[in-house]
Every structure is written in C-alpha cells, then in structure tokens.
C-alpha cells in the first residue's frame, strides 16, 4: 500500500463530498415521499411528502452499505489472522471494525432522523433496524475487548468478528417477515433507482467509499506503526538498551 493512497482517497472524498451535496440539493426531485403501504421509494403526488427529509437517503444508504462491507472485511481478515497468525491481518480487522463503528453510528442516526419524519417514531423494532443495531453493538463490544482485554484481546476480538459475520443471516431471519423498510429501487436493487436520483446516489456511494478507504488505510498504517514501536521496544528491552 503506497503512502499516497490515503491522502489520494481523502482528496477524492473531499471533492466528491462537495459535488454530492451540490447534486443532492439541485439534481434530485424534492417532492418525494414514502407511503406507509408501499415497499418502494416512489415519486409522490399526494400528501405526506418528506420534502428535504428525504435527502438523508443519500447519506444513509451508502453508510449502511459501507457498514456491512466493513463487517465482511473484518470477518474475513479475522479468519486470516486466526489461521495464519500474521498480525497484518489483525491490523486490517481492527481498522475496519473501528471505521464500521463510525459508519454504523451515522447509519443509525440518519435512519432515526428519517424514521421520525416518515414513520413518526425514532425507533421501530423492524428487521433491518434490529440487524444494524445488534451488529453495531457487537462491533462496539469488539472495540471494548481490544481496549480492555490486554494481550489476549486480539484473538478474542478476532473470534467476535468471525461470529458477528456468521450471525448476520440469523439476525436477519430472526426479526420475522416484517421487512417494511423502504427499498431503494424495486426489490432493493439500487440499479433500478429512479433515473433522476441515480447520479446523486452513485456519486454519494463513490464519495463515501473513498472516505471509507481513506479512513481504513490510515488506521491500518497507524495500527502497524503502533505494533512496530511495541516490537522495537521489546527488542530494546531484551537487548538491554532500554530501561
């Protein structure tokens, strides 16, 4: 990983951020609502329009997708760490979990703001909300373990990441058939999103992917440096150079 990667992605994210905000407020239709009985996001004609509240969609969905992406990355690299015992894998897992906690917090908060406007409640025990919350809590548990469990925390946390990844389908099935979460496009396929929303949505996706990558790469690098400093210190202590 070159040392220019993180600044490059951060720059792309910054440019994309400005572009996305511009597109969200100029290019996308305002009269937009979600009717309680419909599964799809549709152009509204009647009452119940969300007006500006709908704009949060362009932040909420990319963050949620990044959250699940990060959990996948953390789970797979934790499997790598537990089988290969190479701490490089652990750096990646730690970085993606910490970034996932941040992205998950944004997902939950933006979702709650939207839910208050659309459903009239801050929180509903609905399938995807429950899944995201439980997953997020497991990730917060991961960071707590990393912080307070000492030397064996790495392995315990890695096992948590693996279990969290396998647990996702169970949590999804668990909350029953009531998936009345609004879907982006028909049947949740974002490729079928309304044509006038598509440019803003994809620009937002790319922006937050860049931002996500910049954060993960930076955190991986800092975790690696922390580890190297620790190892050097131990070496120095062994050699009697350090006190």
């Amino acid at each position: 990983m070159s040392r220019y990667a993180a600044p490059l992605f951060a720059l792309l994210g910054a440019i994309g951020f400005a572009v996305t905000i511009w597109m969200i407020f100029t290019d996308t239709p305002l009269q937009f609502s979600w009717q309680p009985n419909e599964r799809h996001v549709v152009l509204a004609t009647g009452s119940g329009s969300l007006f500006f509240n709908q704009k949060i969609f362009f932040w909420h969905v990319p963050h949620a997708i990044m959250l699940f992406l990060a959990v996948g990355v953390a789970g797979v690299s934790s499997i790598g760490f537990l089988t290969k015992r190479n701490p490089k894998w652990d750096d990646v897992a730690l970085a993606s979990v910490e970034v996932a906690v941040a992205f998950g917090a944004v997902t939950l908060l933006t979702g709650m703001i939207w839910a208050k406007a659309a459903w009239g409640h801050w929180w509903i025990w609905e399938k995807r909300l429950t899944m995201s919350l439980l997953l997020w809590m497991t990730l917060v548990g991961y960071t707590i373990v990393r912080r307070f469990a000492g030397a064996s925390g790495e392995r315990i946390a890695a096992a948590m990441a693996v279990f969290a990844m396998i647990g996702v389908p169970f949590i999804y099935t668990m909350v029953g058939a009531g998936d009345n979460h609004p879907q982006a496009g028909s049947e949740g396929n974002v490729a079928t999103l309304n044509a006038d929303m598509r440019p803003a949505f994809w620009s937002s996706m790319v922006t937050f992917l860049c931002w996500f990558l910049a954060l993960v790469i930076t955190r991986v690098q800092s975790a690696r440096m922390q580890r190297e400093v620790r190892e050097l210190r131990e070496k120095g202590l062994d050699a009697g150079v350090l006190e």
Partner: peptide
C-alpha cells in the same frame, strides 16, 4: 484476562441475541 467477569457478558450477549 483481568476484567474477564465484566467482558464476558459484553462479548457473548450480542452474539447470543438470536
């Protein structure tokens, strides 16, 4: 781990919710 009694529920309860 020293704080095992505190950490055990923190770790296993989210995984055991299903």
């Amino acid at each position: 781990v020293r704080s095992r009694d505190v950490l055990l529920p923190v770790i296993i309860y989210p995984l055991l919710v299903p």
